[in-house]
Simulated assay, not measured.
Amino acid sequence: MDSSWTAVGLPIALGIIMLGLGLGLTVADFRRVVGYPRAALIALGCQALLLPAFCFGLVVALDLPPALAVGMMLLAASPGGTTANLYSHLFGGHVALNVTLTAVNSVLAVVTLPVIVNLSAAYFLDGAGPIGLQFDKVVQVFAIVLVPVAGGMALRARFPGFADRLARPVKILSVVVLVAVIAGAVLKERENLADYFVAVGIAVLIFNVVSLAIGYGAPRLAGVGRRESIAVGMEIGIHNSTLAITIAISPTLLNSTEMAIPAAVYGLVMFFTATAFGYLVTRRRNRATIPV
């Protein structure tokens, strides 16, 4: 992925996406986490520690090729995205908690994601030496991810009406740019897609299902309410595959199409697994409310 179109298009696409996220956030979104400390701490602990540890064990057990293994770890380190918020809304989760978790996770990922990716690369890419998100890459991720979010929040705080009007066009623009860039990447690798799906399909499916189960089950075991647990389940179970793909194939970051394959496959699988998960937890809730 060394074309100038990819090099320029990917950072722009991610920057626009993060700007759109910032336009929908306020400082109050971060303060909401105080109202749900148990659910938030469980979610953040699962995201930062438990899921990467499980993913590491999974890729070792399945003996994935090194680049695909690092790609899986990149996916595990990626926070939830706006799709998690949507699914939470559709299946009765606490959307305000989702927004807070997405925001906090996105900020924490600026630190945790480079650490996890570099440790994974050092283990799986034997002899390759330090690669990827070193200090200069952390600065780049900070600039591409956090600065647009902060800019969008500042714009919303100063001009809320304008921010509301701008949110939809920005979201549409980000989708158009991103689809164009990723379509070019997919076309370049179209002959290998079937092989890649076979290579990581099982790993992605297991990781996705376990992520959803942990995200919902851990807070429920800790006594957290059902709505909040659904929110955590969606947040932990639906990772931001777009962010993982962008970091993987961007020439200024990891510059590896193969590392993007797990996130690309995950981006397709998660729609079906999240729907099934939402149906199951909603069905259980409905059964619990039926009088006997």
Rank of each mutant, 00 (worst) to 15 (best):
V111E: 13
T112L: 04
V149Q: 01
K171W: 12
S120E: 13
I116T: 14
G161S: 10
N85V: 04
G161P: 10
Y123A: 08
K171G: 08
A84Q: 06
T102F: 01
T102W: 03
F159M: 00
K137E: 14
A128Y: 15
G151N: 04
L97W: 05
F162S: 12
A128I: 14
L173Y: 05
V177N: 10
L101Q: 03
L133T: 11
G132P: 09
A143Q: 13
V107I: 11
L97N: 00
V170H: 06
L125F: 08
Y87Q: 12
G132D: 01
A143E: 14
R158I: 07
A180N: 08
R158T: 09
V115Y: 03
A154K: 00
V179Q: 11
A103S: 10
V107H: 06
F135T: 15
R156F: 06
S88M: 04
I131N: 12
L173M: 02
G151L: 06
L119P: 01
V145I: 05
M153P: 13
V181G: 07
I131E: 13
G161Q: 06
N85W: 07
S88N: 03
N98P: 02
V95P: 02
L119Q: 04
L97I: 03
N105H: 06
A121V: 10
V138M: 14
A121E: 14
A150I: 08
V117Q: 06
G127Q: 03
L119H: 09
V141Y: 04
A103L: 11
I144T: 12
F142D: 03
G132Q: 12
Y87P: 10
N85S: 02
V176W: 07
V179W: 12
A109V: 02
G93W: 02
F91D: 07
I144H: 09
F124C: 04
D164G: 00
S106A: 05
G127E: 05
F142A: 05
A154S: 04
L86Q: 08
V141R: 07
Y87W: 15
Q134L: 04
F162K: 04
A121F: 14
P148A: 11
V177Y: 07
N118L: 15
T100C: 15
L119N: 02
V99H: 06
K137F: 09
S174Y: 00
M153D: 11
D136C: 06
L86A: 06
A143Y: 12
A109G: 03
I131Q: 14
L178A: 14
Y87C: 07
V99Y: 03
T83S: 13
A103W: 09
I144S: 12
F142H: 01
D164K: 02
N85C: 00
A150V: 06
I172Q: 12
F91K: 05
F159P: 02
R168S: 08
A154F: 04
L86T: 09
I131Y: 13
V170I: 13
Y87S: 09
D136W: 00
R168H: 04
D126A: 07
L101S: 02
I116Q: 08
V179F: 14
G127R: 01
L119K: 03
F91N: 05
V175W: 00
R158W: 11
L133M: 10
P130G: 15
V177F: 12
Q134I: 07
V181K: 05
P160I: 05
I116F: 03
L113Q: 02
V117Y: 10
I116V: 15
F135M: 15
R156N: 08
V179A: 15
F159Y: 03
R156H: 09
A180E: 06
H94A: 13
D136H: 00
G92T: 10
A167P: 01
D164H: 02
A157E: 15
F124G: 01
